[in-house]
Design a protein around this nucleic acid. Structure first.
Lengths: 205, 205
DNA sequence: AACATAATGACACCGAGTGTCAATTGGGAA
DNA sequence: TTCCCAATTGACACTCGGTGTCATTATGTT
C-alpha cells in the first residue's frame, strides 16, 4: 500500500466522500505508546485499533502490516537522499560522496534524537522488526547502487555497485548498533567513523 | 529449538521410547519438492506434513518455523568457519584472512551446486525468507566479528569488528545475488572479487 | 508382564493478514 | 433542501503460522 486513506484526502481540487477518521502519523503515535509500555510483540493490532478508536480492519488500510508502523515516512526520506547524491560534485571521490551523503542522511535535530533512538531500538532489537526491515533496506541500497553505478559507468545491477551498497548499509547498521549500545556518543561521529573504515578497507592499525 | 526428535535419537548408550517417524533431512526434501512446484508461499505447513505423512504439530517439533526448513544444517557449518579462522596464520593480514575463509566457506562440490543454487534462490528471492534470514546472518556475523576482534585486540562488540562483519556479510550477499543472476559464472570467483573490492575500500578504477 | 520414556497427533487457541459487503459520512448537483 | 455519488469505515468470515496441552502409541528396560 502506498496511498493511505488520509493520503488520498488532499487531492487536486476538492474531495468527496467520508473523511478519514485518523492519519498514519496519529496511528504511529498511538502504536509507539503501546509498544513502549507493553512491548512490540505483546501489542496486538486490536490493541492499537482500540486505542485509536478505529476498527481493526481500518488499521490495515493505513499500514500494510504491524511491522510497517515503525518506519514512518521512510520512503520520502529516500527521495531526499537521492537528491543529495545528485548534488555531489562530479570530482568528489566516490567513497567520499557516499560517506558524506550517508552521514548526512542520518543526521537529526537534537530534539528528534530521543524519538529516533526509540524507533531504532525497536527496529534493531525486536527480532520480528529486525527481520522485516531487510525489505526496507533494499530500497535504501538501491539508491546507493544507482549513484555508484552512475559514477562508475556500469549497470546498476553489476557486482561492484551492489556490493558497495550492501557494505555501506552494513557499516551504517553497525554504527547504529554501536550508537544504541553507547547512548553518550554521537551518531554522526560513529557513522562517519564506520564509513571511513569501509573506505579504507579496514586498514585500521 | 536446537534438538529435533531425531537428534535426540542417538544418545550415549541405547535409546528408549518411540522412534522418530521422520528426520529433518527427509522433511527438507519433501518441503523443497513442494516449494519447487507450488512456490514457497503457496505451500502450507499442512501440505508439507501431509506429504511427509506426519501431523502438522509434529512438523513444528522438527523446525521452529516454515522459514527454517530452507536453512538445513547451517549452524554446523558455522562451526567449521570458526575453525578455519582459528587456523589462519598469525601473520596473515586481517582482510586476507577474512576473504580466504569467507570464500572457502562458500565453496561447494560441483554436484552440490544445483541444489545450493535452488536453496539460495529461495532464500534471496522469497521476501518472507529474505526477511527471516536476517536472523541467521547474525550468527554468521558473530563468527567474523569474533575473529576480527581477536586480531585487533579489541572487544567483540566494538565498532570496527562489528562493521567489518556487517560489511563482509554485505559483500557476500551481493556476490550471491550476482551469482544467481548470472548462472554461467563461478561463485568462488565472484565471492573473491567482492571480498577484494571490500578490502580495497572500493577503489576500483 | 509391568514400567518408564520418547515421540506422536488431535484439539483448541491466538494473532496477523485478506476478501467482501453493507452502512456511514461527507460533497456536489438538481 | 433533497437526492446522488464517492470515499471511508467496520463487521464478518476465512486462511495460515505458531503454541500449549494431553491422551495415545511405540519402544527399551526391569
Amino acid at each position: 500500500m502506498t496511498a493511505t486513506p488520509s493520503d488520498r484526502q488532499r487531492m487536486g481540487t476538492t474531495r468527496r466522500g467520508r473523511r478519514p477518521s485518523t492519519s498514519p502519523v496519529h496511528l504511529e503515535g498511538v502504536a509507539f505508546e503501546l509498544f513502549g509500555s507493553k512491548g512490540f510483540d505483546a501489542t496486538t493490532v486490536d490493541d492499537i485499533a482500540k486505542a485509536a478508536g478505529i476498527g481493526r480492519r481500518t488499521f490495515f488500510r493505513y499500514f500494510d502490516s504491524k511491522n510497517d508502523v515503525v518506519w514512518g515516512n521512510f520512503s520520502e526520506h529516500l527521495g531526499y537522499m537521492r537528491e543529495q547524491f545528485a548534488q555531489c560534485p562530479a570530482d568528489q571521490p566516490l567513497m567520499d560522496a557516499v560517506r558524506t551523503v550517508v552521514v548526512d542522511f542520518n543526521r537529526f535535530d537534537p530534539d528528534e534524537v530521543p524519538w529516533h533512538r526509540r524507533r531504532m531500538e525497536l527496529i534493531l532489537r525486536t527480532p520480528a522488526l529486525q527481520a522485516h526491515s531487510t525489505l526496507r533496506y533494499a530500497s535504501w541500497r538501491q539508491v546507493v547502487a544507482e549513484f555508484a553505478a552512475h559514477r562508475l559507468g556500469v549497470p546498476e545491477d553489476s557486482l561492484v555497485p551492489q556490493a558497495l551498497a550492501y557494505t555501506a548499509l552494513g557499516a551504517a547498521l553497525a554504527a547504529y548498533e554501536h550508537w544504541l549500545a553507547n547512548p553518550g556518543e554521537n551518531l554522526t561521529d560513529i557513522m562517519d567513523s564506520a564509513m571511513r573504515d569501509l573506505a579504507n578497507g579496514f586498514r585500521v592499525e
